[in-house]
């Protein structure tokens, strides 16, 4: 009986010790800080507005994490539906600006990386609002889904961001 009790106690103690170790060690915990999004640039040309935001990806966990994918798509665009071509994406390196390739990013613990989220709105020829872009545009919701891997597992997270064209007044190169 004593041997059984000793074995059970030993197993339980080992399990508790391992659980405590896992808790102490932790994992990567990467969040997109949409509340800290900053308008970065706006260019308007020939009926097309390109908005660019810097949104920090922050690793608040205890372990390094790697952001493998970062997907952006516009939410429902309301009155713009049928009047515009809309394209959204994100990059973080200058080199990838043209291709829109999301290069896998290593985020050390407590490290932040400014993801550059962009949205392009092209109004169709003849649309009366073309001449007063971006003032004619409504707020546009963006759904962002990103994938990261830490020590433990692969995780996908959803973040929602609302792009407000009026926040871009006085930002960037303009028309």
């Amino acid at each position: 009986m004593e041997a059984v009790l000793g074995s059970v106690t030993g197993v339980l103690a080992a399990a508790l010790l391992y659980a405590a170790f896992l808790s102490w060690q932790g994992d990567a915990d990467i969040v997109l800080q949409v509340e800290n999004a900053q308008p970065r640039n706006l260019t308007v040309s020939d009926g097309q507005a390109r908005f660019e935001l810097a949104v920090p990806l922050f690793n608040r966990g205890k372990q390094d994490g790697m952001v493998l994918e970062f997907l952006v798509r516009p939410g429902f665009v309301g009155q713009l539906k049928g009047r515009a071509r809309i394209r959204a994406g994100a990059v973080w390196g200058e080199d990838d600006e043209g291709s829109g390739y999301w290069r896998a990013a290593l985020l050390r613990r407590r490290e932040a990386l400014p993801a550059r989220v962009f949205l392009e709105v092209q109004l169709h020829t003849g649309d009366p609002a073309r001449d007063r872009l971006p003032a004619a545009l409504p707020r546009i919701p963006l759904a962002i889904y990103f994938e990261f891997v830490g020590r433990k597992q692969i995780e996908w997270r959803l973040a929602e961001l609302v792009l407000n064209p009026s926040d871009f007044v006085g930002v960037g190169a303009g028309t």
Partner: peptide, 18 residues
């Protein structure tokens, strides 16, 4: 793999269970 990867320094490739 999940268990052992926990004991590798985080800078090593083997710290990834994958």
């Amino acid at each position: 793999a999940r268990f052992l990867a926990r004991f590798v320094s985080r800078t090593g490739s083997l710290s990834s269970p994958f």
